[in-house]
Design a protein around this nucleic acid. Structure first.
Length: 197
DNA sequence: AATAATAACAACCGCTGTGTC
DNA sequence: GGACACAGCGGTTGTTATTAT
């Protein structure tokens, strides 16, 4: 670990925003050859104009070979709700129990889908001061639940089996498994191989 | 067909904990 | 023990895709 700030690095322009396929391949290639290391130096060594943080995030959430992409299954939904009831917004902890799923994915899923249904259910049930379930809610929700209770044992303001709700809405809880329409990592890895490394 | 509204997702930001010097 | 760098986490924002009008 180098404690001195590297001025030259600060002068280098840092790219932000969406990753290009080229950047993805560079990162994949580099990690395939050198393994994961110190992310800042990895980013530099690989020749990526990205922060180490950005590289790490991209790798963990998208490029890792074991990342599962595609629809969350009904089983996963229930598991997420159950674990969220236990632990609140400990996304990384929850993600550890869902192989191939990332904390970011679960977090997004919760916020965009489950939370929305909670709000809707709340609206139908009328305002309930006891349930402050909006954006802050996610962290507060854990406080709403009796900790250590599985999904069927607490009383959320929504149907315990969210799947039922989900099927009423525009959400394909498609059990059809994933990676049909997404870029699979196999594709990237094979491209990488084709590229010669 | 054009536009607006909404949903879904990817990525960034700021904070905190940990290890090293 | 303090300073620093890094990894990791959770919250938030920006962008793109989809649906409704």
């Amino acid at each position: 670990m180098d404690k001195k700030p590297c001025n030259s690095q600060e002068e280098v322009e840092v790219r932000k925003g969406p990753w290009t396929m080229e950047e993805d391949l560079i990162l994949i290639n580099y990690i395939a050859n050198h393994g994961e290391g110190v992310w800042n130096s990895l980013a530099r060594s690989a020749g990526l104009k990205r922060t180490g943080k950005s590289c790490r995030l991209r790798w963990l959430n998208y490029l890792r070979p074991d990342v599962r992409r595609g629809n969350i299954t009904a089983e996963e939904q229930l598991l997420i709700m159950e674990l969220h009831a236990k632990w609140g917004n400990r996304w990384s902890k929850i993600a550890k129990h869902l192989p191939g799923r990332t904390d970011n994915e679960i977090k997004n899923y919760w916020r965009t889908r489950i939370q929305k249904h909670i709000k809707q259910a709340e609206t139908y049930a009328g305002p309930n001061p006891d349930h402050g379930l909006d954006q802050a809610s996610t962290s507060q929700m854990s406080g709403c639940y009796p900790t250590g209770h599985a999904v069927e044992s607490y009383s959320p303001p929504f149907h315990p089996n969210m799947d039922i709700l989900f099927h009423q809405g525009p959400f394909p809880t498609a059990p059809t498994v994933s990676n049909d329409n997404m870029w699979s990592m196999e594709d990237l890895w094979s491209m990488q191989l084709l590229n010669g490394e």
